[in-house]
Measured scan of single mutants.
Amino acid sequence: DLSALRVEEVQNVINAMQKILECPICLELIKEPVSTKCDHIFCKFCMLKLLNQKKGPSQCPLCKNDITKRSLQESTRFSQLVEELLKIICAFQLDTGLEYANSYNFAKKENNSPEHLKDEVSIIQSMGYRNRAKRLLQSEPENPSLQETSLSVQLSNLGTVRTLRTKQRIQPQRTSVYIELGSDSSEDTVNKATYCSVGDQELLQITPQGTRDEISLDSAKKAACEFSETDVTNTEHHQPSNNDLNTTEKRAAERHPEKYQGSSVSNLHVEPCGTNTHASSLQHENSSLLLTKDRMNVEKAEF
């Protein structure tokens, strides 16, 4: 173990290094160091905050020279020094078990990766560091076993998940096959086929009936047209017969005018059967003409 005197000496050296690497504005270890034209180094955030307070150039807090945003430059070497100082402080805390008085939040800088452990060898070769390295080497064999167990647990979990997924996939297939086998029997399929065939026959029977009705309507229309044509021909046949009657009536009127007047009046009210309204109107006109002729003949006879 380190003596108290040596611990104090190391602590004083760390404090001196820390004062050199402090920012003059925030009085902390410089984060993202930036250098000016006057070779003074500050935190990048502190300098941008200072420049944004005034429009135009501002003055350096140490030498009062003008500073602009374009004049600022990043210093990589200074950032490396800060990183190495942080590593020294971490090693000091691990070796002594004491917390550094002016320690900052170094938890963000710590890294437990194997590459980081290899890099620590180049920091300080001390008894405390050696003991700590031995402890780490002793704890390393235990870690692979834990990793193997965790991997086995994960693989077993994956296997159970896969088996569950396969079961879920197989179950719908089985149910679907069961439904297909038990849903419709052979008799049901035959009945469905016969039902479809009967429906098709009914459709075939319905369509000819409609065509037959249309044919019957067409035949009825044709018969009505033929009947009207026969009526017209009958009226045409009746007209010459009426003319013959008129000639006979004229002759009778010349011989017996008194008797014919009474008979002509009675004939006005008689309509021949089986004739249309057109034929009756023609008869009325003929009878009126005959009456006028008879009157003329009677007057001539009187004179």
Rank of each mutant, 00 (worst) to 15 (best):
L2Y: 15
R6I: 04
E8H: 15
E8D: 11
E8V: 09
Q11D: 03
N12E: 05
N12G: 05
N15I: 13
N15Q: 07
M17L: 04
K19I: 01
K19F: 00
I20F: 12
I20L: 08
L21W: 15
E22H: 02
P24H: 00
I25T: 00
C26P: 01
E28R: 02
L29V: 05
K31Q: 05
P33Y: 01
K37T: 11
D39L: 02
H40V: 00
H40D: 02
H40I: 00
M47L: 13
K49S: 02
K49C: 01
L51G: 00
Q53E: 05
Q53K: 03
Q53A: 06
K54V: 04
K54W: 01
G56A: 02
N65L: 03
D66E: 11
D66W: 08
I67W: 01
S71T: 12
Q73R: 06
E74V: 12
F78Y: 14
S79R: 05
E83Y: 01
C90T: 14
Q93D: 01
D95G: 00
A101H: 03
N102Y: 14
Y104F: 10
K108T: 00
L117R: 07
S122A: 14
R130V: 11
K134S: 09
L137R: 13
Q138T: 11
P141T: 12
S145G: 04
Q147D: 14
E148F: 02
S150N: 12
L151R: 13
S156N: 08
R162N: 02
T163M: 01
L164K: 13
T166V: 00
T166H: 08
R174T: 11
V198M: 03
G199Q: 08
G199D: 07
Q201E: 06
L204I: 07
I206E: 07
T211E: 08
I215Y: 15
L217V: 14
D218P: 13
K221R: 04
C225Q: 11
T233C: 03
N234L: 02
H238R: 15
N243Q: 14
N246L: 06
E254N: 13
E254G: 02
P257E: 13
E258V: 10
G262K: 02
N267R: 11
E271P: 10
E271H: 12
P272F: 06
P272G: 14
C273G: 07
C273R: 14
G274M: 08
T275A: 13
T277Q: 06
H278D: 15
S287V: 06
L289C: 12
D294E: 03
M296R: 09
N297L: 08
